[in-house]
Design a protein around this nucleic acid. Structure first.
Lengths: 206, 206
DNA sequence: GACGATACGGAACATCGTTCCGCTTTGGCA
DNA sequence: TGCCAAAGCGGAACGATGTTCCGTATCGTC
């Protein structure tokens, strides 16, 4: 819990928007966006990513209209808050593959990293799984960044003959994400151990 | 999908309340309760277990007050609708243990049964996992009926030396339940296969 | 048939997401 | 510096949903 690795650092850089949209020309707009991200990050920790939108707006000291202009959906807000951590997790993949004694070991370590990230974000895993309209962007963002990494690790392990080949990266990631649901609020449920059992189950039966 | 086994039959017997509460002395009350259960079962199939309460009440042709009197929480309604199927799943455990070639095989088959049940009920797995207040009763009901069965199968497999001993029945059931979340609405996500991988992972490493 | 207990129905209230629009601020320009 | 159009802001208002409450209707009994 709370391992001090690259994935769980919460620093964000100055620019609130790491994406493709051009930052506003107006200073107040940029400041509000940044303020909203900070407020959201705080509220997410205490109330989870399902916290009422009003709570976030009021903590940021802005109106609802302002929040919705900068972040049309809750998914946008969540992406904004966790963008850098997701990227760090993605970056860790190739490094682990290079350093670990075997591809399966790298996969296991990488999934540990992913699980540590998810489990420390109240409700993130649940909303990541959500099929509700409006969360597609969140889903896509995670998949865009992490799926290729997972696929690379998986392929390497399959090529090395270490694991079975009938589970694709998408299914595995969703499974791991699902296993993390509720883990943050229940000390009796050990999502980390369970994901390791799952990854163990990938091993080629002989 | 839609396997015709004992667990997935949807018949209910005459008495709407299989639980401990004494049935009402009034005929209209008993009839309304039964009507509500039928309406809920129908609505759950089409709109999932998260369907608006009003939809169920209106389909049953009763007022909201009536619905809330008979089923104070959504969990009570869900329990009422699926009570018999849960019981059938519980009953299948000992039978499988007696018939299967090995305890681990029995466990695998029983979990297949459980997964088949969950996957065919839109949103059930998700709400089963929910930590929200009001769903504790649902959680407890499932655990009361199924946890002992799971524990028995797990113990037998451990005793037979087939699987590792560091995963308890509660964790396993929650993990399986979690793996089923969203499976009903996404053909690309194969919860059955994933749960088999998980159960495979339980095998004692040698 | 009368009467008390029980149950019914749905209006009313609370919460939350989302939209909309009149007002304010900002940045560029003369 | 002063002006102005564009951009942004705030929060009232609306719709959906869960939940409560109470006046009225119905049932079972005597």
């Amino acid at each position: 819990m709370g391992r001090d690795d690259a994935v769980n650092q919460s620093d964000r850089c100055g620019d609130a928007d790491g994406g493709s949209a051009a930052p506003s020309r107006r200073k107040d707009a940029r400041r509000n966006k940044e303020t909203l991200l900070e407020a959201a990050a705080t509220v997410f920790v205490t109330s989870g990513v399902d916290a009422p939108v009003r709570d976030i707006a009021s903590r940021a000291g802005v109106g609802l209209g302002t929040l919705y202009r900068h972040f049309p959906t809750r998914a946008d807000l969540i992406i904004g808050v966790y963008r850098h951590q997701v990227q760090a997790c993605a970056d860790a993949g190739p490094a682990l593959l290079a350093a670990a004694p075997s591809p399966h070991d790298a996969l296991r370590q990488w999934i540990d990293l992913f699980v540590d990230f998810l489990v420390t974000k109240h409700g993130l895993a649940a909303v990541l799984r959500s099929d509700q309209a409006g969360f597609a962007a969140l889903h896509d963002h995670f998949l865009d960044r992490l799926l290729p990494v997972c696929a690379e690790l998986l392929d390497a392990a399959v090529t090395a003959g270490e694991i079975r080949a009938d589970i694709d990266a998408l299914t595995l990631m969703r499974g791991v994400g699902n296993l993390c649901i509720g883990a943050e609020s229940d000390p009796d449920y050990d999502a980390r151990r369970l994901t390791r059992v799952l990854v163990d189950g990938l091993r080629r039966p002989h």
